[in-house]
Amino acid sequence: MSLDYVKVSPGFEKYIAKEYRDFVEHGPFGKKVSVSQVGTFKEALEEHPMCAGCAMTLFIRLAIIAFPNPEDTITVGTAGCGRLAISQAMIPFVYGNYGDTNAVASGLKRGLMTRFPDKYKDVVVMAGDGGLADIGFSMMMHSWFRREKFTTIMLDNEVYGNTGGQESGMTTRGAVLKMAPLGKKFDKIDMPQLAKTAGCVYVATVVPNNPRRVESVIKKAVLIAREVGPTYIQAYTSCNIEYAIPTDKVMEDANNVEKDRYQFQEYITDEAKQYLADKWGYSEYKKKEIPGEVKA
């Protein structure tokens, strides 16, 4: 495995912009970095055009730090706020049209597995609740039915934030928004349950105010998707503009929502547990030998 693509050609080292030099010298590629080390290495995502106080940006930043091998990861996104930040990260980004992110990711992953059979190339879909649960619902479900080996991360801000505040399938019942003045008439879609039913082998719900937990679930989801099957993470990433959350209260809101409807849930199949234990050394999933058990 070579990381030559993050080496500057001789003679041009001082002509390339400082931030690229910093990335080559202090970036996360080829190293093991953790969210607890933020500030000690050059992150793949720094500049972005998102709103002040955006929880989604914090989550995306944490997720990108958590990728096990960012140098061999491709993200897929679609229209919405999230892709404004994801596409500016120093890892390749593919822009799927609205609705087809998981179809694009399916083809991409299959192509990468054929082209690079001897190494892991991770594909991660990161899109909003509208892009996945509404417009991209069919493609997403079918990618899970087919057991495509990539990770889907929903950036759930419970609204179409980029277009002025229309309700999405993930908006909570009764929520009043700028473009939904009568309040939403039906319940939030239970996507984690649908994911389990559709065949995801790892499903988790998180909020961004616990960085280590975000890191943990992203790493597990990406690793499991390499060989076992599709994985799904649903992250509450509030839209402080459409929900009028003061910038300094965004984390407080995440905390309240976590207590209310976004408790940490983690579903993992026995096969995925076994894989994590055997392949990646997760001791918590190692089978405990029962004293006196007779092995066949």
């Binding site: 190293k31 953790s34 607890s36 597990k220």
Partner: peptide
């Protein structure tokens, strides 16, 4: 001369293991 290919950096497989996984 002195214009050689930069040395390749290998990525150790254990990089996938998170530190202090929950």
């Amino acid at each position: 001369k002195n214009f050689a290919m930069a040395k390749a950096v290998g990525v150790p497989p254990e990089l996938g293991r998170p530190e202090g996984a929950i």
